[in-house]
Computed example of a mutant assay.
Amino acid sequence: MYRKIMAAIADDDISWNALQEAIQIATANDAELCVVHASSTADDDEKNRNSKQMGADLLQRAKLAAGEKLEVETRLLEAEGEFGLKGISEAIATAATEWDADLLVVGTKGRRGLERLVIGSVAEQLVSAVGTSILLARSR
C-alpha cells in the first residue's frame, strides 16, 4: 500500500512513538523509510552548529532504532528560525513533497483549547500543507 514513508521526529517521546509506527508500517509494506528532523536556524553560528549536531545525533539514533532489517534514509532539514513552528512545518512539507512520500508520520501531543490556540502545532500545520496521507501518532 505505502511505498515511501517519511517520519518527522524531534527529541521527545511522542516522536519516538511516531517513529516506531513508521518503522512497523515500512516493515509490513516492504517500503522505503526516510526520517527527517527540522532544526531552526539562528543568528548565532555556535547555536547553529550545536543544533545541527544534535539533529544529526538524533537521526543516527533513529537509524539504529530501525535495526538492520530496514534501510533508513535520514535528512537534517533547516527551518527558518524567525518563522518558528511554521518554518519547521514548511521544511517538513517541502521534504515530503520532494521525496514523493506516500505517507507522512508525525507525533502529536493532542493539545486542546487555549493551549492549542496559543502554542499551535507542527502536526496541525502539516495537515493543511502536505498533499499526502498523514498519520498523527499520539503518545501511548
Results as ranks from 00 to 15, higher is better:
Tyr2Glu: 00
Arg3Lys: 13
Arg3Ile: 00
Arg3Gln: 08
Arg3Glu: 07
Lys4Gly: 03
Ile5Arg: 00
Met6Cys: 03
Met6Asn: 01
Met6Lys: 00
Met6Gly: 02
Ala7Gly: 04
Ala8Gln: 02
Ala8Glu: 01
Ala10Trp: 00
Asp11Phe: 00
Asp12His: 00
Ser15Ala: 10
Asn17Val: 08
Asn17Arg: 10
Gln20His: 14
Glu21Tyr: 15
Ala22Met: 02
Ile23Gly: 08
Ile23Arg: 11
Gln24Pro: 00
Gln24Gly: 11
Ala26Lys: 06
Asn29Gly: 03
Asn29Ala: 14
Asn29Glu: 12
Asp30Pro: 01
Asp30Met: 05
Ala31Asp: 10
Ala31Cys: 05
Ala31Glu: 08
Glu32His: 13
Glu32Leu: 11
Cys34Gln: 14
Cys34Glu: 14
Val35Glu: 10
Val35Phe: 05
Val35Cys: 07
Val35Pro: 11
Val36Lys: 03
His37Ser: 15
Ala38Arg: 02
Ala38Asp: 07
Ser40Ala: 12
Thr41Tyr: 05
Ala42Gly: 06
Asp43Val: 07
Asp43Pro: 09
Asp45Met: 06
Asp45Leu: 11
Asp45Cys: 02
Asn48Glu: 05
Arg49Met: 12
Lys52Ala: 14
Lys52Tyr: 06
Ala56His: 10
Ala56Lys: 11
Leu59Trp: 13
Gln60Cys: 09
Lys63Arg: 15
Lys63Gln: 15
Leu64Glu: 15
Leu64Arg: 15
Ala65Asp: 12
Ala66Ile: 08
Gly67Thr: 11
Gly67Met: 09
Gly67Phe: 01
Gly67Cys: 04
Lys69Glu: 07
Glu71Gln: 10
Glu71Ile: 07
Val72Tyr: 06
Glu73Phe: 04
Glu73Ile: 03
Thr74Asp: 07
Thr74Ala: 05
Leu76Asp: 10
Glu78Ile: 04
Glu78Asn: 11
Glu78Thr: 09
Ala79Val: 06
Gly81His: 07
Glu82Ala: 05
Glu82Met: 05
Glu82Asp: 08
Glu82Gln: 06
Phe83Asp: 07
Phe83Arg: 10
Gly84Leu: 07
Leu85His: 02
Lys86Phe: 06
Lys86Asp: 08
Gly87Trp: 02
Ile88His: 02
Ser89Leu: 02
Ala91Asn: 05
Ala91Glu: 05
Ile92Lys: 01
Ile92Cys: 01
Ile92Ala: 01
Ala93Asn: 01
Ala95Tyr: 04
Ala96Cys: 06
Ala96Thr: 12
Thr97Lys: 15
Thr97Gly: 11
Trp99Ser: 09
Asp100Tyr: 01
Asp100Cys: 01
Asp102Trp: 13
Leu104Phe: 10
Val105Asp: 01
Val106Met: 14
Val106Arg: 08
Val106Ala: 15
Lys109Asn: 13
Lys109Ser: 15
Arg112Asn: 09
Gly113Lys: 03
Leu114Arg: 02
Leu114Tyr: 00
Glu115His: 08
Leu117Gly: 04
Leu117Tyr: 12
Ile119Tyr: 13
Gly120Ala: 10
Ser121Cys: 13
Val122Gln: 05
Ala123His: 12
Glu124Arg: 06
Gln125Leu: 15
Leu126Thr: 09
Val127Ser: 11
Ser128Ala: 11
Ala129Ser: 14
Val130Glu: 06
Gly131Gln: 09
Thr132Val: 14
Ser133Gly: 13
Ser133Lys: 10
Ile134Tyr: 12
Ile134Gly: 09
Leu135Gln: 08
Leu136Ile: 12
Arg140Glu: 12
